[in-house]
């Protein structure tokens, strides 16, 4: 019976992994920008939620009304004014990646620095929906369940957008071949900017949701950029709809593996799976390689 609860917990954990990676897959897979400052928006979403509940005594979900638009706009500006010049002058994707890494790394320093100065490095946490939910004989935390459901809803919404809207079709085409996409009349830059901005907003949303059950500080950004990147690579860069599934696989393997073998190894299993996939199927689990 514990095993079933562990499996369920692994699914919820995996939902969290998928959630934090959705935005990065939009930024890296679609807009082709490996944004090292991605986690800073996750952190910003977490802090906005924290202040909303702890300072203003409001439901932290309301913080999304603030953090989503701000993250969207800032990321849009970053793409328009910092990334487009790099895209323009890069000879190929490798050269672009190198430039992008440097610039977004600088952004990471700036954002984290601002956070440290204004919000100190102290660990923060708050209690929201931290009650048990009993499902089929297992107990899960309501906040984790909520984040999982939100992850599923977001992934589904993204799936619908990508499959059935004009915007989504453009994004899919751009992910496959940006040059061909522009040759059918897709304004790749405009849509990349929007995809990049949407990715940043998703980062903030995931930060808000995760902050309901994990404590955080001004310096957690890098850790979550890395976690997100692992899931993105696991799913396949650009496989937005596979991101949640990859997260779920990772979460279940980590939780069940740790329980069956040794709790010390949960993080090792996480990285182990990642490396295995890199070795055996480097384009990702869900690519049509």
């Amino acid at each position: 019976m514990i095993l079933f609860e562990v499996f369920l917990g692994g699914l919820l954990l995996g939902g969290m992994y998928g959630l934090i990676a959705l935005g990065l897959n939009l930024q890296y897979g679609v807009a082709r920008i490996l944004n090292l400052s991605y986690g800073e928006f996750f952190m910003g979403g977490a802090f906005t939620a924290f202040f909303t509940i702890m300072l203003w005594k409001l439901n932290p979900l309301l913080s999304l009304f603030v953090s989503l638009p701000i993250a969207f706009v800032i990321n849009w500006l970053i793409y328009q004014y910092l990334m487009i010049p790099l895209v323009r002058r890069a000879a190929d994707q490798d050269a672009l990646d190198a430039d992008v890494v440097l610039v977004t790394f600088g952004l990471f320093f700036v954002f984290q620095g601002l956070a440290l100065v204004n919000w100190s490095g102290d660990l923060r946490g708050y209690s929201f929906l931290s009650s048990p939910v009993h499902l089929v004989g297992a107990t899960v935390a309501f906040n984790r369940l909520f984040a999982f459901l939100a992850a599923c809803a977001l992934a589904f919404a993204l799936f619908l957008v990508l499959r059935y809207t004009r915007f989504g079709t453009a994004l899919r085409a751009m992910t496959i071949d940006p040059v061909a996409a522009s040759l059918v009349g897709i304004d790749v830059r405009k849509f990349s900017a929007l995809a990049f901005a949407a990715g940043g907003a998703l980062a903030a949303a995931s930060g808000m949701l995760v902050s309901t059950f994990i404590s955080f500080s001004s310096t957690i950004g890098v850790e979550y950029t890395l976690k997100a990147l692992i899931v993105v690579i696991l799913a396949g860069v650009g496989r937005v709809t596979g991101t949640l599934a990859a997260g779920l696989v990772l979460g279940v393997v980590e939780s069940v593996g740790g329980y069956l073998v040794d709790p010390q190894l949960t993080i090792a299993i996480n990285f182990g799976l990642f490396m295995l996939v890199l070795l055996l199927r480097p384009t990702g689990l869900f690519t049509r390689a």
Binding site: E5, V6, G9, G10, M16, Y259, D262, P263, Q264, I267
Partner: peptide, 20 residues
Amino acid sequence: NKSYAFGASDLQPLIREVMA
């Protein structure tokens, strides 16, 4: 008496084991 990975994202399985 068990150890867990520092930085783990979920300690619920371990606590369950403790409770048992």
